[in-house]
């Protein structure tokens, strides 16, 4: 269940930085909470998010339990060539997710 939304401008200009936003659906369970009957809920947060732009890694975040559920990450990437952004992430239980978005470069 890949559940993420990515926002990239419809068109970007070569050589200019453009804003990338990604929101990933994840409970980001901190490990500090208890169930109603007092049992600890094991920690399960996204450990790492990477973004590759035409196969080259352009962004990496090591996320932890201080980050809210359904984290929203914003960063900037320099426009080079048309292609795609590929996001990959992995959580504490080893579940991986991936989502991609096309990038259209003008000029």
């Amino acid at each position: 269940m890949a559940d993420a939304r990515i926002q990239v401008p419809a068109q970007v200009r070569r050589g200019e930085a453009f804003e990338v936003k990604v929101i990933i659906r994840h409970a980001m369970e901190t490990g500090y909470r208890l169930t109603d009957d007092g049992k600890p809920i094991p920690r399960n947060v996204i450990r790492e998010v990477t973004c590759r732009y035409n196969k080259v890694e352009v962004f990496r975040a090591e996320t932890s339990s201080g980050i809210s559920a359904n984290p929203l990450i914003t960063f900037y990437v320099m426009a080079r060539d048309s292609g795609e952004l590929v996001f990959d992430w992995i959580d504490d239980t080893g579940v991986r997710g991936t989502e991609r978005a096309p990038v259209s470069v003008a000029g």
């Binding site: 559940d3 939304r5 926002q7 936003k21 929101i23 659906r25 559920a69 359904n70 929203l72």
Partner: peptide, 12 residues
């Protein structure tokens, strides 16, 4: 409509 996390549910 992007930052609103509930849009994840709408999209699903």
């Amino acid at each position: 409509t992007f930052a609103n996390p509930a849009m994840l549910w709408v999209e699903k």
